[in-house]
Amino acid sequence: MNPTITLSFTLNGRPQRVDVSPNRTLLDLLREEIGLTGTKRGCDVGECGACTVLLDGRAVNSCLVLAPQVAGREVVTVEGLAPLGTLAPLQEAFIHHGAVQCGFCTPGMLMSAKDLLDHSARPPEREIREAIAGNLCRCTGYQQIVEAIEDAARRTHEAR
């Protein structure tokens, strides 16, 4: 009654082919069909940002993207940040600055931060806060997260 379609896209740098019914979201696809559970579900209505992934390099709420909409596109999830186990500067900085408490918002936060740092070399605090405004965190009060992103930006910049 609900025919599936075959979907090809790039996931964390690798080609991915998967059968999916069209009424599933990208979040369903990642977590339930592909088994990448790093991307979290907190609200399913685009408010909490726990499901944030990069779609063609930009942060989006995967709960609001219909799975077939990613055909031919590029998706990066938190699992794609350290594919070989070497932490990216952002991940290092999150640990180092105490930006992780319960960790449920962390994957989404990291993806929003990555979008920011991929497009802005040394963003000021205000811009960082704006970039993570779509990621709710109930634990940290955001400050150590902002500090971590500032630090990652600095380290990435210096490394260049």
Partner: peptide, 9 residues
């Protein structure tokens, strides 16, 4: 409008 994620989409 909304958040960066919403504005991107």
């Amino acid at each position: 409008i909304g958040s960066p994620q919403i504005r991107n989409r």
